[in-house]
Design a protein around this nucleic acid. Sequence first.
DNA 1: TTGTAAGCGTTATCAA
DNA 2: TTGATAACGCTTACAA
Lengths: 341, 341
Amino acid sequence: MARGREPTVKDVAEHAGVSPGVVSRVVNANGSVSERTRERVLASIAELGYRPHSAARELRTRTTNTIGLVLADVANPFFSQLADHIVRHAADAGLGVLLTTTQEDPAMELKSIELLLQKRVGGVIAAPGTENAAAWRHMRETGVELTFVDRFIDRIPGIDVVGMDNEHASHSATTALIERGHRRIALVNGPSATSTGRERIAGHRRALQEHGIAEDPGLVVELAFRPVEAETALSGILALPQPPTALIVGNTAVSASVVTHLRSAGISVPHDLSVVVFHDAEWTALTSPPLTVVRHPLDDLARHAVDMLNTRLNSPERLRRREKRLPSELVIRPSIAPVRD
Amino acid sequence: MARGREPTVKDVAEHAGVSPGVVSRVVNANGSVSERTRERVLASIAELGYRPHSAARELRTRTTNTIGLVLADVANPFFSQLADHIVRHAADAGLGVLLTTTQEDPAMELKSIELLLQKRVGGVIAAPGTENAAAWRHMRETGVELTFVDRFIDRIPGIDVVGMDNEHASHSATTALIERGHRRIALVNGPSATSTGRERIAGHRRALQEHGIAEDPGLVVELAFRPVEAETALSGILALPQPPTALIVGNTAVSASVVTHLRSAGISVPHDLSVVVFHDAEWTALTSPPLTVVRHPLDDLARHAVDMLNTRLNSPERLRRREKRLPSELVIRPSIAPVRD
DNA sequence: TTGTAAGCGTTATCAA
DNA sequence: TTGATAACGCTTACAA
């Protein structure tokens, strides 16, 4: 892990015939330097190829321009698009992004937290799992600014949240199906231990209630955020004596495998089953038929997350907790149709 | 960007009634400490919640356990899956990953290089663009270990490369089509300025030659790695007096938009046009018909990239340049069929 | 406007 | 086995 010796402030100072302090002031456009020496210093910097040493700077100033990003799984299109936007916005704000993934595994999440703590990142954007509330809280108490994105664990003071309005999105999806005459609507959801899971069920229930439809618990399945169990769960639902006529997939991680299974099970969409999927991945319009989706404002989500965090990073005083909800949009495509008699 | 004060070696030392040096030796399982004091120190560490300060450590030891990852675009499924694997393997090796994206923009790539240089990362894994050869070379000369993944610019001494065998993959795809009677095979490719672009064209040509088929330059299109131009380029090809009967998409970034366009243009696959796509994204089996794809060994690619880099990081002497090629696999699905008369 | 010097948290060296 | 001390590269009072 050795690195070749690179020029330091001292080298630059000697080369320019000034003191190290002056070089620092030039580099940071801090304190005062005469125009003449400023130019000399800049010339020396250019000639020597001097580059400030981040670690030394961080050590001295107790600050950092690196933030952490903790996501479950960058292979999931929802998270990967989110990550892409976050990295871009962070770069615009002059922030580097240290990315860790947890694979929805609490132990890996803990390791991520540990790594970011050691790196003394100034702040972290995370879509937290459900098990490490204490660790997240502790991270915040340690002075690390924290913004939860998409999901959150608890309304912890000082931890901002930016997410979608899942309750509303889910309500819209269910309502669209009810309006098409569906009464037996299945929901394949993420775990209720997650905020997104809970909110999506809540919106679904509210829509059913508003139309006087009794809820059938057998039609709601909670799947972990890994695709494995999708098949069996789905088979179970579809084999019910009274199978559903519509299906909402509220768990982004399993959408593709659900669609695969429907296809291999020979289920015709929307004839046998109307389908709505959360997250407008690049392929959802390419299936036959194209899928009705809940489209999330990922770029806005990322922008707000970076902004909120950055505000905290640059604010000396302790700010109050903020929560931002962004609206999703129901994009109707041919995968939903009026129910058959 | 301020951080709360956290315990330091000094605090731990005082608490345990030893000197800072001893604490350091305990933490790093370095030098010698008696079992008795070791336990006392560990207890103090636990009680105070001490965590070594990365920056201080980096400054003193001139090492780092952070690597950089420079990719064009994490929203592209090929890169996002690659990133996911790389982050996982890096974590297994105890390495944090600082992710930057370039959006295929040379200026952004340069900014990424600059950031990683300042952060004094020990090594970088990158899928480089074509314009910054000098900067990459300089980065290497500066002592940063470098591994190019997927693409490479030049065979620069000391920069390892791990990629797919694109020539072979492309040759297989074209051959599969020729064997089905196709003679007019279009290739939508990435820029020839990239190694992957060149290799894929080469394999395509070799297959044509082996079967005595004259190459029609009008059937080969180079598209930048952004989806925008896909439509016009494709319309052009399909409007030719003698349109192709088969199409290979060698540019991962535009696959989805190509398929979208074919659909909206009312082209029936494989009846009107056989289609092969590079990279087996999660949706390629979900279209109608399912797409024949070139499947890349992404996990292996990531594993080798991290391993090669890590070897360099831990090797005191300057190693020779290595190049590793991994085989891709042609997965035949119904999107290709014998040519019609 | 400039230089000097101390110190950020570590670890390595050397002496005890 | 342990402790004292210097140094990594930088910034920032403070003094000149």
